[in-house]
Simulated scan of single mutants.
Amino acid sequence: MATPQEIALAHQRRQRGIILTLVAMVLGLWRRIDQGRLTESWQADVGRSIVATTAQAQLETAALVPVYLRDLAAAQDIDLPGLEVVPEAFSGTASDGRPLESLMYQPVIALKRLLAEGVPMDEAMRRATAHMTMIAATQAADAGRAAVEAGMTANPRWVSYVRVVNLPACSRCIILAGRTYSYSTGFQRHPNCDCSMMPVTSDDVRVPSARGLFDEMSPAEQERRFGKAGAEAVRLGADMGQVVNARRGMATAAGGRKVTTEGTTVRGVAGRRLGDFARLPGERYRRSRVPRPMPEQILADAGGDREEAIRLLTRFGYLMTPTAT
């Protein structure tokens, strides 16, 4: 049987494969935008296709999680809980709680602003393209991580998680490799971060550490990631956390109160559980008037009370009893 560490690294590689495919597809769709009719071409086809493709990647990264957690529990010789992640609950919504289509439109807004400032079209498109691929990749990874958070919370044997970093990675992620956090601690990430989480039963775990990853890299790669002077300082024994500001540029999807309307219609899992429906102008289906928190918000609201977190994750449609197969 594979070790927990091998299972976690394999899971991360599968997630990375989904993200790389997503980026390639989004690039192809983005190139179809009419540079003379940005909003019109976005609304006609390009935007709808990009949003749908990103939502599908979110679904695929979240769908990896039930199998990942089952394999991990078996390798750690612990029982599975009576609840399982609902992959669909993590698709179609941005990790800050807004509708995914709203977030994906931001590169178009940025492109228009750059052109209004006099930036040449080629350069403006280059920046907007980088922005678009960053958003898509980050949202797919966030969906997978949020699903792991929900599934981990459902199993009381998992008291914490380890940050799993696989090369290639940036210096900000490398210095956090192997660190352990409480199960209810929000996952810190920066845009384009594809680090993952390995739920654990104790702090006695072995995954690639910051120093281990540093030693795996060639001197040239070390200098690319940490800078020439920084890499040399680490090779001389300096603490990587002092060489690199671990928090610069990092963000946590759990920061601020986050709610979403996704899945709250009469057809959605959360909507059916929440009730209190009303038909809003312009919408086809009635929607629950009860705010639906994001998974990260639920963990924050629970304040470390695992039973309360499970209750809320179940109530809001992120966990459910698995169907028999």
Rank of each mutant, 00 (worst) to 15 (best):
P4E: 10
E6F: 07
A8D: 04
A10V: 00
Q12S: 14
Q12R: 11
R14Y: 05
Q15A: 13
R16L: 12
I18T: 08
I18R: 03
I19L: 13
L20D: 10
L22F: 02
L22M: 06
M25L: 12
L27T: 04
R37Y: 10
L38Y: 04
T39W: 11
T39Q: 14
S41I: 06
Q43S: 13
A44E: 09
I50K: 10
A52L: 12
A55D: 00
Q58V: 04
E60A: 15
T61M: 07
A62S: 03
L64V: 05
P66T: 09
V67P: 05
Q76N: 12
P81W: 08
F90D: 01
S91L: 08
T93K: 13
S95F: 08
S95H: 04
D96N: 13
R98E: 13
P99G: 14
E101H: 13
S102M: 15
V108N: 07
K112S: 11
L115H: 00
A116T: 04
G118R: 01
V119M: 14
M121H: 03
D122Y: 06
D122S: 13
M125E: 03
A128H: 04
M134F: 05
M134S: 15
V148F: 03
A150Q: 04
P156D: 15
V159G: 11
Y161G: 01
Y161D: 00
V164S: 13
L167Q: 02
L167M: 06
A169Q: 01
R172D: 08
C173R: 00
Y181F: 14
G186Y: 00
R189G: 04
S196H: 06
S196K: 00
D204R: 15
V207A: 15
R211V: 09
R211L: 14
A220R: 11
F226P: 00
K228S: 14
K228M: 11
A231E: 01
E232G: 15
G241R: 14
V243C: 09
A246F: 00
R247W: 09
G249T: 08
G249S: 11
A251E: 07
A253F: 06
A253R: 09
T264Q: 08
R272K: 15
F277A: 03
L280A: 13
L280D: 10
M294K: 06
Q297Y: 03
G303C: 10
E308D: 07
R311T: 09
L319V: 05
M320Y: 00
